[in-house]
Simulated assay, not measured.
Amino acid sequence: MAGDWEWQWDETLYADSAPHYAVGRMPYPPGLAGAVREELGLDGRGRLLDVGCGPGSLTLLLAGMFEEAVGVDADRGMIVEASRRAGEAGVANVRWRRLRAEDLPAGLGTFRVVTFAQSFHWMDQALVARRVRGMLDPAGAWVHVQATTHRGMPGEDPLPHPRPPWDRIDELVARYLGPVRRAGRGVLPTGTRAGEEEIMSRAGFTGPARIEVGGGRVVERGVDDIVSAVFSLSGSTPHLFAAERPAFEADLRRLLTRASDGGRFSERTREVRVVIWRP
């Protein structure tokens, strides 16, 4: 499926997950903004477009390095959550639009930087790449942030508290939803698509340049954080459980409580990879 997946939009992909996404995903590392600023020579000028912005995690991190930022996402709940978080953080230079990436440019204008974070694989990649290239300033950049933020690195090294029992969590999800990964109304038996480099080259981009921002920070997480991490995933969004959601959540909380140290877990954050393309 990864090689021959025919694109079809599914509005239920992240239905009901936005509040959980904001809680259950670990923040990007503190050094990410500085690394992007240095690599791209950002100086506070120009505009940022964050495509598939979710609850604004990356948008809000980078917005201060631009005159204006625009976050777009196809999920209404994500846009509502992003707007709420921007208000709480006092970030006033961001506009939010509920918009599918395939509907760009949508009169949004041109941008110095366009970012994608954990989102491009859900889109009609060839179409979006062509349209976004036409929205970039001649000296602009496409920035793809590749990260796993719902769970930390595996390992046996001692931490202040136990690691979350992710293998048993996955088994519990499979017991309720079946062994094949769910995704909205469909399934992903072999995961999402690969082949991004070929798509970008065909669309006329050059590169890529790559930078890495180290992980390894030890973070403390609670039972509520891990529950939200599970519900933030496309394969276990709340609506997929339907009437069984209360039973699943009760089983999940029971599992986590028993595995925790007084409700507390520790994890090491994963490395974040940044891939930069030029138009």
Rank of each mutant, 00 (worst) to 15 (best):
D261L: 01
Y21E: 00
E156H: 14
R270C: 07
G52V: 07
R245E: 11
I79K: 03
P55K: 04
V230K: 05
P165C: 05
R273Y: 08
M153A: 15
V80F: 10
F111V: 06
A69K: 05
R185S: 13
L40W: 10
A209W: 11
H239G: 02
W277E: 06
G184N: 02
D75T: 11
P27H: 08
T237K: 03
V132P: 09
F66Y: 11
A250K: 15
V272W: 03
G152R: 08
Y28F: 13
A74P: 08
V145Y: 07
E156I: 11
A174E: 15
E267I: 01
W277Q: 09
D170V: 10
F241C: 04
F241D: 04
L42W: 05
M78W: 00
R131M: 07
L177K: 03
R210H: 12
R264V: 10
V132R: 02
H20A: 12
A117K: 14
R221P: 00
N93A: 04
V230Q: 04
P29A: 00
H161S: 07
R85G: 02
E198I: 12
A15L: 15
D73R: 01
L104T: 08
V132I: 15
L32I: 07
T110Q: 13
R254L: 02
F248M: 07
L60W: 14
I211C: 01
V113K: 09
G214K: 14
G87W: 10
D75P: 00
D75K: 06
V272E: 00
T190E: 15
A141W: 11
A101R: 08
E220M: 12
W166A: 06
